[in-house]
């Protein structure tokens, strides 16, 4: 079953609309909210994992587009600056989704973008500010 992690940005006119409800009810999609940030009368952002049949995913995405919800893949928003990272491993114990992993053989750090849920816990932890989340 296709699955993707996306960031939904709602303009203020849509903040009080039950968009997630319609994605589930009308488009038969599984919606897992990883993160939400809604400012009443301003805008809302949801980081969601959506899964469902290909046909349902397409109709769901079309619905979002028609409603004026901006969608973009989550991976585009989280940046690991490898050149700034010193491979110290400070981020390893805090990362809840296993996006930051360390190879215990040589202690090198790598970042698996597709596992990141943009929780931002690593941001204040990194002493070299090597992770950036652009929202």
């Amino acid at each position: 079953m296709p699955k993707k992690r996306i960031v939904l940005t709602f303009p203020n006119r849509l903040v009080d609309q039950p968009i997630t409800y319609h994605l589930i009810k009308d488009h038969n999609l599984m919606v897992n909210i990883l993160r939400a940030n809604v400012t009443p009368k301003e805008e809302g952002r949801l980081v969601v994992e959506i899964s469902g049949k290909k046909k349902d995913m397409e109709s769901g995405m079309n619905y979002l587009k028609e409603m004026g919800v901006d969608t973009q893949p989550l991976t585009r928003d989280v940046r690991w600056h490898k050149d700034r990272c010193t491979q110290c491993t400070a981020c390893i114990s805090i990362c809840p989704s296993g996006a930051f992993v360390v190879n215990r053989e040589d202690m090198s750090v790598s970042f698996k973008k597709d596992k990141c849920i943009a929780c931002e816990l690593c941001i204040p932890i990194c002493p070299y500010r090597a992770v950036e989340v652009l929202f």
């Binding site: 491993t89 390893i92 040589d106 202690m107």
Partner: peptide, 25 residues
């Protein structure tokens, strides 16, 4: 410490380093 977890008073605790072994090497 470098294995990623240690046992303290019977509890397993996740570890992380501040000193880079990769760069030290």
């Amino acid at each position: 410490l470098k294995s990623g977890k240690i046992s303290i008073k019977g509890e397993t605790v996740k570890t992380a380093g501040l000193s880079s072994y990769v760069k030290a090497k």
